[in-house]
Amino acid sequence: MSQQGSRPTGAAAPGQGSGTGGAVEEFMAAYRAWGAAPTVAGYMKLFTPDGTLMDSGLGRPIGYRAIERQMEAVLTVVPDYRFDPFAVTVQDGGRVILVTARNTGTVTASGPTGPTRPAGSGESRGPSVAVDYLTRHRLLLRGPRVEQGRRYWDQTELFRPLSPGLPGLVHGLGPGAVLGDARPGRSHRRRQDAWNARDAAALVAGLPESVRLTGPGLDRPLIGRDSARAYLERFFSATHTLELTPGHRVHEGSTTFQEWVGGATVGPERRPVRYGVLERLTQDASGATEWELSFDTLDLVASATEIDRLRALLFG
């Protein structure tokens, strides 16, 4: 299991953040109950009738019926799916929350006629593999239901067990990685400008030397600014352009999440995609800083044709 499947520190337990309010507690209780025994009907009760969801790989947010179809597909290919929303950070009295959740289950790849073919039919089904990964959910609540949601996760966590040859964006990255030349005079540029200029040196400039970075593809945290910078440079080598604007900022106690949302051109084909990056900064009681990044790498390492093949393998 990669670092993405390990529980980060620094966020409050569900329903226990400061000033969460009754609506957040009610929502988190329903979220946990659904995750322990997921059903499509139960999932849809978490949303308002006009609720929307933005997800990795989507070109635009989807509405109620499309959300319903998405969950039907998930529970078909992962019938033992479980969802553990173990941490929540609360902003604006509970209007905006950031939930971190563990996702587990057994994925069965589509056989010749798809994952719903009856057992004993004589047709073989694809391999079954266990998956275990984290997702982050920025949720805008209306009362105890989701009005607008955005999920941050790396789709390769789901597809790589079925396609072990899928490249890893940061494979082989570790201490001693060769750094690119820093861009002079830009260490104090605005953070949005630094992301859009893909300026790794500027993004790490304000962090302590001992910063611990976690992110997609890492089995363990990277320690120090130079290691964090090398990680970002690898990410930026596959993102040819970024056009990100600040999304929601969710702050509670010593933890701050910041969304960056917009578009990018990515991968070997330089495809234009909707894209998002989620940052988490947490400072513990000793003053140590954790920096966590959440973003999707599937578009960065695979062609559109390969992604279509992977989706067909899983969903039929």
Rank of each mutant, 00 (worst) to 15 (best):
G172E: 07
P167A: 04
G206H: 11
L169C: 05
W195A: 01
P115L: 12
L173E: 06
V178M: 09
A109W: 01
R145P: 05
G114C: 14
A201E: 13
R220N: 08
A130D: 11
E147I: 00
T135Y: 07
R136L: 13
A119N: 13
G111F: 11
T104I: 14
E209Q: 15
H171C: 13
A205S: 15
V131K: 03
R95Q: 01
G172Y: 02
R191D: 12
P127S: 09
G217C: 04
T239Q: 07
G93I: 05
T156G: 05
S227H: 07
A202G: 13
L213K: 08
G93L: 12
R191N: 06
P161L: 10
T106D: 12
H171Q: 15
G168Q: 11
A177T: 07
F235I: 13
R186A: 09
G176V: 00
V99K: 01
V204P: 03
F236W: 07
L179N: 02
V178W: 11
W195E: 10
G206Y: 14
H137M: 13
S187T: 15
S210E: 13
G174V: 08
G94F: 10
L166I: 09
T100W: 07
R183Q: 08
F235S: 11
E233C: 01
Y133N: 06
A194M: 03
G111V: 10
I223M: 04
A197F: 10
G149H: 04
T116F: 11
E209D: 14
V107A: 13
P175M: 03
H188T: 15
G172N: 04
R102T: 04
R95I: 00
Y133Q: 04
N196Q: 14
T116Q: 15
S210Y: 04
S237V: 09
W153S: 08
A238Q: 08
A177D: 06
A119G: 14
L134C: 14
S227K: 00
V131R: 06
D132R: 05
T106A: 11
G105T: 03
T214K: 02
V129Q: 07
R220S: 09
T214P: 01
